[in-house]
Design a binder for these strands. Structure first.
Lengths: 173, 173
DNA sequence: GTTATCTCTAGTCAATTAGTAGACTTTCGT
DNA sequence: ACGAAAGTCTACTAATTGACTAGAGATAAC
């Protein structure tokens, strides 16, 4: 019942992009994302690239480039993202909607295991296919504010730029 | 979100043992189980052995031996079986009850992904930790009877013995 | 034209999965 | 007591997947 790291990182990145956009920073760089979530840069790049091909993110190349969401967060279903990266949500393929495959059991219609797993798969899909990125972003931000936790990626909080800028200024007076 | 073959086969075998007991055949041999479910014999043996160590099945060794349930089917929780063979039900370990592990995210309490996955894990666990072998067996048998499908392992239906016995009689008159 | 970014392709390394193989032990029927 | 038919135990393996790592190339800002 595992979520792969790929999916996990993809979801984290999307959530960050959603938060950042909400706070007026539509574009983030891989370096920022990987720093915040402590993820391997190159691996994350691959994942973001896959998300781009699938139409979830857009990129701006070159200096001052970065990634941004390619569509409204309310139209990004988390179930679809997981399916893209990890394949079907169903625990066994004979109960998958998106990638059904017959299994070896002699009679699917009377297979107790299948009935059980169908229940599990529906339950997972109900949650994941309803949850949108917008919902997660909203809940996260609300919780952070309620608990007065500093919100990441806000333009006026300390971020990578705030930390680096003074040093740069000293080097080039 | 995958169930491994190990778990799948274990569950199938347990369900068969439950059905067989219900029909007055408390003991089944690996050969019967693997024939019915079309599973590799030796692999299934390993799995049954693991189920024995964990206290789910008992064995009778030697000729006419075989496997039987070691406790009432109503006391076998399917979630526990899956945990034994596949590890935690949770999609990511920071939401596991049985094997919690901190993840790399900076702040668990305000992690949107974690909230979502907690929801998923609870939903899976609710189903799997409530479902007992007895329930699955009962539902399966009811469905089979309703649809007038021949029930496997019944003492008076055609089974392995019925198929083999005539041949044996001819060889030894 | 230099520097900071993303892009693409390939390679690696370890773990996991799904088995196989075979010698060994136990028990039943005769 | 013996042989056939069961389960037991340990080891091996082959293929796949997962989680990266490496590095040359393209693009855009300054």
């Amino acid at each position: 019942m595992n979520l792969s790291k790929r999916s996990e990182y993809a979801l984290r990145a999307l959530i960050d992009l959603g938060i950042a956009r909400e706070l007026g920073r539509p574009i983030l760089q891989v370096a920022e994302l990987s720093a915040k979530e402590k993820l391997p840069v190159k691996f994350l790049e691959q994942i973001l690239s896959q998300l781009r091909v699938a139409g979830y993110v857009e990129t701006k190349r070159g200096k001052l480039g970065g990634y941004s969401l390619a569509k409204p967060a309310s139209r990004i279903k988390l179930g679809a993202v997981i399916r893209l990266l990890d394949g079907p949500l169903a625990p066994i393929s004979c109960v998958s909607q998106s990638a059904y495959e017959r299994c070896t059991c002699p009679d699917e219609a009377h297979c107790g295991l299948r009935m059980l797993m169908l229940d599990v798969r529906n339950s997972i899909a109900r949650i994941l296919d309803r949850a949108t990125l917008a919902q997660i972003v909203e809940i996260t931000l609300r919780k952070m504010r309620r608990d007065s936790v500093p919100v990441p990626f806000a333009r006026h909080s300390f971020g990578l730029n705030d930390l680096l800028a003074p040093a740069v200024r000293e080097i080039r007076p």
